[in-house]
Amino acid sequence: MFRQLNHLTVVADGRYARPEELNFLRDYLASVETRISAYEKIRAEAEMMADKIQAMQKAENPRCFHLTNGDRAEICRRDLVDTMRLCASAMLFSELDLLRDNFLLWYRTIVKSFNYEASSSSTYGKFLPNTMKQLLTPEEQQVMQPILALGSSILSE
């Protein structure tokens, strides 16, 4: 969204924007209520979702948070909560590029450096999208889905 706005200010400098160049604004404004409601739900439930996701991960693999330097469940939980907040913000502003450039690509290297790929894969490829599905309405899911798909494609093996 920010990049689209920025792009529009550059390409339409010195002239009026064409109707098709304003479509992204119409689409965004039409979805803004849904985005705010999804954002508020995630904000209210993030901590609980993190607990739920970690419980599912542990049920699947009790040693999933045992990294090379010991049990790191707390750090993984913190990262999960942060990721959910950043994903919710990206959904609110429809800003995938910034989420990818500022967080996901960097976090992928951190995941890899701790050999945490398998757990990351199950968290961001399976449990987080499933948990979000239970929380959000179909309309809210529709605006959240591109964000979760991006996260899954970058953080899953």
Binding site: L86, L98, D101, N102, F103, L105, W106, Y107
Partner: peptide
């Protein structure tokens, strides 16, 4: 903040 590696930030 540790995730600050986009060119913009």
């Amino acid at each position: 903040r540790t995730n600050h590696y986009s060119l913009r930030d």
